[in-house]
Structures are given as structure tokens and as C-alpha cells.
Design a protein around this nucleic acid. Structure first.
Lengths: 337, 337
DNA sequence: CTGAAAGCGCTTACAG
DNA sequence: CTGAAAGCGCTTACAG
């Protein structure tokens, strides 16, 4: 009634434990006939590998990690990470690799966790998200010799693999959409200043605006929360020369902004056009629905997982560019009144 | 330069490996003095346990699992699970227990995963969510002798531990709020029919309505998505005797319903009052903000984790009732016109 | 209170 | 192509 081990298989098949191991792992060293016999017995006994034993002797954990450094109670509406995780797992599960997903309070706790995972050998590799300008984690992970994929490069990821989308090109498509509609005063409610992708978007925003002869192109920094998205919108709309269009760095803030506009009696899109970076059910649910920058985050996750798996296979770290996000025009953008 | 093991500690401290193990795990069998010396050396060497070795010999994985059976691409706006996971981890991390979180397509895949986890001994226990009427998992988990906590009982969870909130009492508070405002035609856009808590809410809805002399109390079944929430709302509002108030089983559908009302030119709350079960930033962001049933899901998660940890300690399975969710009245409810 | 040994279930050189 | 043995880093009886 105990769980069968390779010892039981070896006994029953009349071979050694070593041969069983080779056969089960599809490695050379046993004849095709004995392999078949061994697999048959394993199947009959309903044998499954003990993950701890395998991890101990092979020095592999068969799991990889993803840490999210956010104050737990503020996590919420953003569907991005759920989609990402689903995509990661879809790919990882094809190789029976588990995902250790952990939410921590801040980057200090995140770093401590990598140290622990490394020394406990809990994971074979990690995904790094929310990259910052001069991120400490790149260096740490390289020092720990922990295989890693940086999600949301490019650049600044040392010798690590990375998967990323071209934020600059996406920003250009937004500005082109608004510029073509006739907007000349555009504001942006940006995300956290320290994040690398925020900085990249800011640069692209100003460059694209300049190319369209848009001189009034202000960026307001926020922490991504609905509160700050709402108050930034209020400040912009009640200023002396309010913008005719606002671009938000996430969907939550865009929705909050739409709420503020409704409250102030500012008509969307006649008085102000709104664009959300990242599409979500949220954007489609609003009235009018929000014009949004859509990307296939699930597929992005799959790609990231695939990249980490190749690194674990010993391939040199790749630098993978994902599709450019696509702007989906909806009711929240139109020509300025 | 290799990672230190207990052997290194034993050598350096001049004791046996066994003594080191006892000291490190705070168990009796070593004198206070040698324990201190051993801990000192461990600290000096920056020793950390190898989780695989520990799991193999102690037959513990030091991790627990949570599986979500939802088609991956439909996962999204609901903040409930993120909050829950954060709460689970906050508690689990105090005991260095990891959480294996996995998203699968359906219950068949979920069950297969439990079998695998059990035979590979990947986890010491699991959390069961989205309980169904006559759920197969209860029986399976009991047969596998896998410690478990059912989240969202009560009842129907066999000999397993459970944590739950009183959905019936919460539903009563909603109906009382609406009844006191003068509503006599109330509809409910319900979640998935097969789920246990949906059924409990349905029963409570009808009983509470009857108690207030509300005869028009219709329930429409949905799959929790915004699409179905929207179309159910459209059907209700364009029917021959539309309700003056609608109760939604989640926040996503309530927001979708608000969008439909805006589209149809139905005023909220004058023409129709809206209530969301589960509060979220989403509800506060809308204009008018939605009256919602709030609960502290983070704390709920902590409590669930605590319960599973006590089960792992060998305590008899507990049945823990969480706080009753609290109705937060906002702009979306008022007296019927 | 402490030490020496066996064992957890695998993988991996090393002989034959 | 196959077998016997050692070893991964812990824990846990069992002697002293």
C-alpha cells in the first residue's frame, strides 16, 4: 500500500535501480526491449517520481519562481499579472515545472526571498518583473548564478535573458491616433517613476509629441493606483489650459479618470479623449468604452516561460521581442470639440 | 565555496550531524550550551537547509497548494483571488511554507493535479475553492489523505476543515437595505449555478425577499463574466416590468450592468438601484460609485492558511466562521422613483 | 545528553 | 548494454 519506488520497479522487472532510472528518463544505456518492459512495470505500479528525491540527487527543483513586490493590500484590479501567470504555467506545465508565485511587501523582501530560494535550492530559475532603473536584482541574480528571464526589457538586464515589447513603438501609435484626430494638448498620467518601462514610455511620449508638433505634452507621475489616477485627472481637467486628451499608463487609472470626468461634467470624448495603456474587461465595460492599447499577455507569458526553459537547458540567454501592442480605438477618443 | 551542509557545521562544532539537526530544529536532545554553539556556527557559515533533502527525509514538502480551475484567458478583473493569495502567503511565510499556485482549465485537470501532487509529494496540503454542489474533490482529497481546508463552506465538506463567511446573513443585509428604501421588485444576476455559494445565496435571496413581502424576486444565472452580466441586465431592464433594483453576484457583472444602464438611458439610482457582491476599487471608481458588499479577503486568506497549518500540525479539522461581509451603501442605491 | 548509523528515493559515475 | 555502489543533505530511531 506504500507508494512504489524505483526499487519496486527494479525488483519486479528484474533489473537494477540504475537501469530503471535511465529507462524512466529516456536516456541511453538500456536496450529498447528492457526500456519497454520497465516502462510497462512502472505504469502497472502507477509509479510517480518523488519530487524531493529527484531534486536532491539531480540538484534540480523542477520549479521556477515569480515574485511580485507590491504591498499586498493594494494588489487588485490589474489583470495583467493573472494573465501573465496563466501564460507562464501553460508553458511550464508542458515540462512539469511548477511555478512558485509569491507576493511580498517590497524589493528588500524580494531580494531576501531570492537568497533563500537560492540557498534552499527551491527553484531552478526566476522571472524578474517591474524592472527599475539600475535594478539591484540583476546583479544579485547573476551573483547567485540563478538562471533568470527579465520580463519587460530591453536593455539594462546584464547578461540575463529577456522578453519585452516595444513600448516606444506602441506610444508612437497612441500619439499618432490622437494627433491625427487633431489633438494638440495631450497629457499623460504616468506610472511609477522608478520603473524602467515608465521611463522608456516617457521618452517616447515626448519624442512622438514633438514629431507631431505637440508642444503641450505634460507627464504626471503616479503610483498606478486609482486614487492618484483620479487626483491627477482632476488637476489636469481643472487647470487653466486643460488637455484635450489624456493617456494613462494603466487601465485602472484610466477608469478612475473617466469617473472624474463624469463627476466634473467633462464630456468624453467631446471635451477630453481618454486612452488606456493595457486593455482589459474593465475598459470594455465602461460607458463609453475606452480606447486601449491591447497586448496578448497570456502569449507573452508563454514566451517568457519558453525562454527560461531554454536557459535552464543550458542555451545562451536570448533576447526575445514580443509583438508590438495594438491600439484598439473605441468610444473614448474622438476629435477635440 | 560550496554551500555549507550540516556536515560542515558538525565538523566545525565538533559534534555529530544528528546533534546539529536537533539543535537547528529546536528539538530536545542537546544541551543548551552545545545548541548555542551549533547555532553560532550555522550562522557563521550562513547555513540554510536544503529543502529537497529536508523534504525527502522528513517526508514533508513545506509547501501547500492552491488550484484555480478556470479557463485561463477568462481570468481577469476579479481581485478576490489576488487578495486571498496575498493573505494566504502572509500567514504561510511565518512558517516558511511555500504556496504552489496553479491555474488549470477545468476540474478534471485540477483533480489530475492533486493526484500528481500527492504521489510526487509536492505539497503537504491544499486549499479547495469554488466548491460545487456534490463536489468530487472532497472525496478525492480525503481518499488521498491529503490535508485540506475548504474555503467557502459551510457544510458539504466531509471531514475536512473549512473557513467560510455567512453568505445568507450577508444577503439578508442587502435585501433589508433595498427593502427599507422601498424596493418591491428586486432581481438578482447570479453566478454559476453549480457553485455551492451561489445556491446558498439563491436560497437566502428568496427567503429574505419573502420576509419583506417582495414577490417579484427573480434570479438570472450567469457564468460570472461581464458579457453575461451585461446581457442579463439588458434583458431585465427592457422587460415589461423591470426591477427597481438589481443585485449582482460579483463586481465585474455589476460594473457591466451599470454600463448597460447608462447605455439604455436608465438612471442610477433613480430608475434602478445596483448592488455589487464583493467590493473592489472597480466599484469605487464608477460614477456613481456602487453600493457593495465588502469583506476583508486578505484577512480571510490569513485565517484559511492558519487553519491549514493547524491541520498539518495534527490538530482535528476546524470549522472557522469568518466575519459577515458588510454592506457599504454608496451612490448606486436609493429609493425607487 | 550525545554519537554513529541507517534510511528517505532518486541520479550518476564507474566497472564489467 | 547492464549492475552494483556511492552519494545528494537531511532526519530519526537506536545505542551508549
Amino acid at each position: 500500500m506504500k507508494r512504489p519506488t524505483i526499487r519496486d520497479i527494479a525488483l519486479r522487472a528484474g533489473v537494477s535501480k540504475g537501469a530503471v532510472s535511465l529507462a524512466l528518463n529516456g536516456r541511453p544505456g538500456v536496450s529498447e526491449e528492457t526500456r519497454r518492459r520497465i516502462l510497462g512495470v512502472a505504469d502497472e505500479l502507477q509509479w510517480r517520481p518523488n519530487s524531493a528525491a529527484r531534486a536532491l540527487s539531480a540538484a534540480r527543483a523542477d520549479s521556477v519562481g515569480l515574485v511580485l513586490a507590491r504591498p499586498a493590500r493594494t494588489l487588485g484590479v490589474e489583470s495583467f499579472f493573472f494573465q501573465l501567470i496563466s501564460g507562464l504555467q501553460a508553458e511550464l506545465s508542458t515540462r512539469s515545472v511548477a511555478l512558485m508565485f509569491q507576493v511580498v511587501e517590497d524589493q528588500a523582501a524580494e531580494i531576501e526571498l531570492y537568497r533563500r530560494w537560492s540557498s534552499e535550492q527551491r527553484v531552478d530559475g526566476v522571472f524578474l518583473v517591474d524592472l527599475r532603473v539600475d535594478d539591484q536584482r540583476i546583479d544579485l541574480v547573476e551573483r547567485l548564478r540563478m538562471p533568470a528571464v527579465v520580463i519587460g526589457g530591453p536593455g539594462h538586464h546584464g547578461g540575463l535573458a529577456s522578453v519585452w515589447a516595444d513600448d516606444a513603438a506602441a506610444m508612437v501609435s497612441i500619439i499618432e491616433h490622437l494627433g491625427a484626430l487633431g489633438h494638440r494638448r495631450i497629457a499623460r498620467v504616468a506610472g511609477l517613476p522608478g520603473l524602467l518601462h515608465t521611463e522608456r514610455r516617457t521618452t517616447a511620449f515626448h519624442e512622438a509629441a514633438a514629431a507631431w508638433g505637440i508642444t503641450a505634452a505634460e507627464c504626471v507621475a503616479t503610483d498606478y493606483t486609482d486614487e492618484q489616477g483620479a487626483s491627477a485627472t482632476r488637476d489636469l481637467l481643472t487647470g487653466r489650459t486643460p488637455p484635450t486628451a489624456i493617456v494613462y499608463d494603466n487601465d485602472v487609472m484610466a477608469v478612475a479618470g473617466a469617473g472624474v470626468a463624469a463627476e466634473l461634467g467633462v464630456a468624453v470624448p467631446d471635451d477630453v479623449s481618454l486612452v488606456a495603456w493595457d486593455d482589459s474587461p474593465l475598459c470594455r465595460l465602461l460607458h463609453p468604452p475606452l480606447t486601449a492599447l491591447a497586448r496578448d499577455t497570456f502569449a507573452f507569458g508563454e514566451r517568457a516561460a519558453k525562454t527560461l526553459l531554454t536557459v535552464l537547458d543550458g542555451e545562451p540567454p536570448a533576447d526575445v521581442e514580443d509583438q508590438v501592442p495594438v491600439l484598439v480605438p473605441r468610444g473614448s477618443t474622438g476629435p477635440p470639440r
